[in-house]
């Protein structure tokens, strides 16, 4: 299962010298481009099309089916539509913060994929601090949200930005603590090590994925992840019926697309982290690793859409309460218990 990172594989394929820095820089960029394109393709599928189809399925409708097979060409139509809209810059917006925010939101989530092993050798880098890196770049998104919130010079944006920060603070700590409990199991922050540690059999054919080893941590992580990506019951930073669209109220055209894109990539990044640390990464029978990996992140995406259709959103004060009084305590308990059990048994 262990394979060389993508740039080295490319170098070997092309017959170039893997020890040359120049070659590696170029090939890293090429690899990053490939992975970025893969994730963007998924996002393009998810945003304009799959989301509509999934929501429609939950609500007894059909959704897009006029343009192309299964309405798939709506993706093209939407892209043209969104990009051709006028970019309206609000009066009194704080530039360049206002312009940078969408870029930060979209790019930070994408950066996380650099260390995710997607199977079949699609793995850009494998640093020893892999998991810490993913959490770090995923958290950077909050900066983008705050910037968007205050720079828009709009009270709804401002409220949304404040909500986003309060929410991310309250949920990232449980998220990371629960992730840390997996690190205790695997004994490493390196993504490939965490995946490799899940390959043994737990009972019979059941692999020792950490979702099976510690279902409690898995559930905690799934919940915290919903808050992290801002989906029901935790879609408070946007909450269109309350604060119009929160931090993204004033964004239109390309900037809107970037923020929207960032959100979806973020959901996929959440799915990728869950797949890697709880669901055995790209592991699975018969099908190639990358297919299994995509199935898993789409599974998590489906879960977020399900929550969105069915679960009411909580109020901001209730959200903070659940985060600090519930999730934090539970994730600390989970971490301690895991540490004790691992300490005793190993």
């Amino acid at each position: 299962m262990q394979s060389a990172p993508l740039p080295e594989t490319l170098a070997n394929l092309l017959g170039l010298d893997p020890n040359s820095t120049a070659v590696m820089i170029v090939l890293s960029l090429v690899g990053a481009g490939l992975i970025g394109t893969l994730m963007m393709t998924n996002t393009a599928l998810a945003g304009p099309w799959a989301k509509r189809k999934i929501t429609a399925a939950f609500t007894d409708r059909i959704a897009v089916d006029r343009i192309g097979p299964y309405g798939l060409f709506i993706i093209v139509a939407d892209a043209v539509r969104l990009l051709s809209k006028e970019l309206i810059v609000p009066e009194g917006a704080d530039r360049p913060a206002w312009d940078l925010a969408p870029l930060i939101i979209a790019s930070t989530a994408l950066l996380g994929f650099a260390v995710i092993p997607m199977g079949n050798g699609i793995h850009l880098a494998d640093p020893e601090v892999g998991l810490a890196y993913v959490f770090a770049v995923a958290s950077t998104t909050s900066i983008g949200l705050v910037m968007a919130g205050y720079a828009s010079n709009n009270k709804y944006s401002f409220l949304g930005g404040l909500r986003a920060v309060a929410q991310n603070l309250a949920y990232e700590i449980p998220l990371i603590l629960t992730g840390a409990s997996v690190v205790i199991f695997a004994g490493s922050l390196q993504m490939s090590e965490i995946v490799a540690a899940q390959q043994q059999s737990l009972i019979g054919p059941l692999p020792s994925w950490y979702a099976f080893v510690n279902p409690f941590a898995f559930v905690l992580f799934m919940i915290a992840n919903l808050a992290e990506v801002g989906r029901n019951p935790f879609d408070i930073p946007e909450a269109p019926t309350e604060i119009v669209a929160g931090y993204q109220t004033e964004y239109s055209s390309v900037y809107f697309v970037l923020i929207y894109l960032g959100e979806f990539i973020h959901i996929f990044l959440g799915g990728a982290i869950i797949a890697t640390i709880f669901l055995g990464g790209p592991a699975g029978p018969v099908l190639p690793g990358i297919v299994w990996f995509l199935i898993k992140i789409w599974g998590v995406f489906l879960f977020t859409q399900w929550a969105r259709s069915a679960v009411p959103r909580v109020r901001i004060d209730q959200l903070i309460e659940i985060g600090w009084k519930g999730m934090l305590v539970l994730s600390l308990a989970n971490l301690l218990l895991t540490a004790v059990i691992v300490g005793v048994t190993v």
Binding site: T55, F58, T59, D60, R61, N232, D235, A239, P240, T241, Q305, R308, S309, A310, V311, P312, R313
Partner: peptide, 17 residues
């Protein structure tokens, strides 16, 4: 339901249905 649950709620569409 739209106000409290959120804008993608199934119950809104069911109501319309």
């Amino acid at each position: 339901a739209l106000d409290v649950v959120g804008e993608f709620t199934a119950t809104f569409q069911w109501g319309v249905r």
